[in-house]
Design a protein around this nucleic acid. Sequence first.
DNA 1: CCAGCATATCGAGATATCTCGATTTATGGA
DNA 2: TCCATAAATCGAGATATCTCGATATGCTGG
Lengths: 102, 102
Amino acid sequence: MDLEKPIAALNNPVRRDILGWLKDRSNFPPPLPGHEGIEGVCVGYIQDKAQLSQSTISNYMGLLKQVGFVVAERHGQWTFYRRDEAKIQAFLAAFNDELSKR
Amino acid sequence: MDLEKPIAALNNPVRRDILGWLKDRSNFPPPLPGHEGIEGVCVGYIQDKAQLSQSTISNYMGLLKQVGFVVAERHGQWTFYRRDEAKIQAFLAAFNDELSKR
DNA sequence: CCAGCATATCGAGATATCTCGATTTATGGA
DNA sequence: TCCATAAATCGAGATATCTCGATATGCTGG
């Protein structure tokens, strides 16, 4: 696995925060009516919590998606993002491997 | 532990390479006469291997030292750098903890 | 003390990242 | 169809990082 882009994606405190918040849906307001069964959190909620502009958060989520740390799912006009635990673990394994002596 | 600076230090392929090379002394030429017992590798050897300017490598080693990934030891006019395995492991543990779900 | 070598520090130009507001695209409702 | 809302994309200024050459510092041998 190439670590370059994943590490760059994590080299930002807000992006790391977002990944942290996404561990637990209850870090965000309850789903809107009609969204109850959907996994993940919409961009607007993430933006409200991060307190950065809409375009910045959209950009951040795009970066996190590019490196596989999150998965996006569109429902109507909303995009729901959630963590991809397997990809995150795979990265952590590769990262540990590259850094650890043996 | 604050992850900001350590992650930034690792957000560079040459700095990661250097940390990798330092896992094994045999990645570098044998010690000069008089340096046989000394742990670590001098800046010049690292520079030769990395193929970047002396000032860049000195800067890189300073960054890696600041975040604790390497230890510097001066012997005469040479500075010998070696990995601090405990610090690296401590960082990896904190990093895993921040990223993993539980 | 001086010359020479290893390393560190300084200053700067090139490049990349951050973050924004404005605009565009996509969707759903009246 | 028109409008409103959510999200993505675009373009740009501010800031940070990369990397260099030049210079400074520190050490050693003569």
